[in-house]
Amino acid sequence: MAAPIAIHLEFGGGAELLFNGVKEHHVTLPSQSEPWDLKQLLVWIQRNLLKERPELFVQGESVRPGILVLINDADWELMGELDYQLQDQDNIVFISTLHGG
């Protein structure tokens, strides 16, 4: 049983438009039996934060191609992408590089 963890989420490059224009979110993920990974975080974001047009943020299990993810200021490709296990106080940034956000 993992304890609830507090993380900092940031959206940029137009991705914030899908979250009512709010760029920064401090959220606490509830405790669950297995540790939180990024894949579960995306599902959680989709259920709890995303305000509209989920297909413009998530596609399949991953983020939409063209949206970059940084975990603690490092490329998520270095961190194992979707399998990365979230730690308390992690900083996750989503930046859209797509035209028009």
């Binding site: 490059g13 137009g14 438009l17 047009r53 297909e55 413009l56 940034v93 590089t97 028009g100 956000g101």
Partner: peptide, 26 residues
């Protein structure tokens, strides 16, 4: 686009997001 987005984020280059014609389109 990736290099630029990372550079801007890591070195605090300010950019201003302005909606365009294709914002939020399919």
């Amino acid at each position: 686009a990736k290099e630029i987005a990372y550079y801007n984020h890591l070195f605090n280059v300010v950019s201003v997001f302005i909606p365009s014609l294709d914002t939020k389109t399919t």
